[in-house]
Design a protein around this nucleic acid. Sequence first.
DNA 1: CTTTTGAATTAGACACATCTAATTCTGTTC
DNA 2: GAACAGAATTAGATGTGTCTAATTCAAAAG
Lengths: 258, 258
Amino acid sequence: MLSDVMEDYLKAIYVIESESGPPVATSEIAERVDKTAPTVTSMLETLEDRGMVTREKYKGTELTAEGRTVAIEVIRHHRLLETYLAEHLDYSWDEVHEEADALEHHISEEFERRVAEVLDEPQADPHGDPIPSAELEPPTGGPTVPLSACESGDRIVVARVSDRRDEDLAYLADAGITPGTTISVRDVAPFGMVTVGVGDDEQSLPESVAASIHVTPADHADEANADEVHAGEADSDEVHADEANADEADPDATGAGA
Amino acid sequence: MLSDVMEDYLKAIYVIESESGPPVATSEIAERVDKTAPTVTSMLETLEDRGMVTREKYKGTELTAEGRTVAIEVIRHHRLLETYLAEHLDYSWDEVHEEADALEHHISEEFERRVAEVLDEPQADPHGDPIPSAELEPPTGGPTVPLSACESGDRIVVARVSDRRDEDLAYLADAGITPGTTISVRDVAPFGMVTVGVGDDEQSLPESVAASIHVTPADHADEANADEVHAGEADSDEVHADEANADEADPDATGAGA
DNA sequence: CTTTTGAATTAGACACATCTAATTCTGTTC
DNA sequence: GAACAGAATTAGATGTGTCTAATTCAAAAG
Ligand SMILES: [Mn+2]
Ligand SMILES: [Mn+2]
Ligand SMILES: [Mn+2]
Ligand SMILES: [Mn+2]
């Protein structure tokens, strides 16, 4: 039907649409899928022929309903796999992404069902990203704000951490900053360097890292288990329960990062 | 490095070599991988360039040591996956093959290690085929004979069942004929129809099916658990312990069926 | 030996996914 | 409103994996 390469393009377009809205620029897609612009143009023509996208020449591209469904399906596969690898095959949360990327195009619907069943229909993956339902409606994480937008004194819970750059993830895992962790913002320096307290430790994070951590205000009820900081074991359900009452909307709130 | 298609060719060549010895005919490969002969010729040239096979024009093809290692690696992936699917994701033994075929090219070495670890380095897959070790030495199942070569009155244990044709597998699963099952040969009719007793039931199997069931003589010690016939749950270790003392060599004894 | 015949290879084509280089378009700047 | 800069597309090429049709070969039969 669709090749795995096509699925990757659709996933990329979906993520970009979620972050900045349609129409999506060719160059943006090219950057995500790591291909040249002419390559992307020609693939977009193919995807248009297949009814997956609509486009206006020199303007941009938009997913059709069908293309969006395919993208969501791939994202569901990806996040179920990440969750399964973490919970049943002893992967740490910073190792799951690559393996899931390789497998997401190759599992059967049966496999998807069985994994979802043994995991008991999980709501979020190890990075805190919401897992689309089997019905493939667009997943909506609750509203969150980037840590880089927080102010000194804020007490917050980590909702999601972008799974894009591996070395950041390993660093954060080591620092104990994982979805579900409660942390407090100590200082926001010029150029966005954020200093946070996590448990008894203190960490300074460059702006680029702080921007990839999405948080919600801490419920006071949560402060008791603020030291539940180790490993990628935070209860995903709780994470998203917490997210329900954040104060500010966030363009990335759909949790589109694959 | 090598594409998944190339891996499939190498696996096919390995299986044919195991069954009938090198050199392997182009047409044999074509049949296994379901491609035309010219397609196979051109792929064999590619594989020769990559050092995976040697060939003599118009004569046949042979795996190099490197090509053999790749094939064994793919087979290890396949059989580990089959075993994992059966034991941890509730697949029945007649459902595992297709899923494993799709995933075998896409799992990482890390995934392989972790699956092997949670399964505790299994020795055989759900069809009774031996799983190559992590060191990728050619696996050797013990000697077995096809059921079609047995005689009336023989009392035997099912060692392996070819995983090539799905509908046969489902039928045999239903009839309770799985690796580890002890059965007795009641009658061998003309044209190879074999009638066997399994538990209290009696089954007649056409020659083609009987030929795909490989057996060893029953140890008398085993007759106690002759009714351990349900589901794909027979203990694989026992199966291959049993195989160690069969009487006749079998060209397919390497268990090459993927 | 020569002929036959079936298998294997060569020839030529096509679809897909990719690239670099050249061209064209759009939106912004003067 | 003309010129420019940057983005997107077109043009043209490459590698891979596949096919059908035509040709060549080798092993078996005479
Ligand atoms: Mn699915
Ligand atoms: Mn993720
Ligand atoms: Mn391996
Ligand atoms: Mn098998």
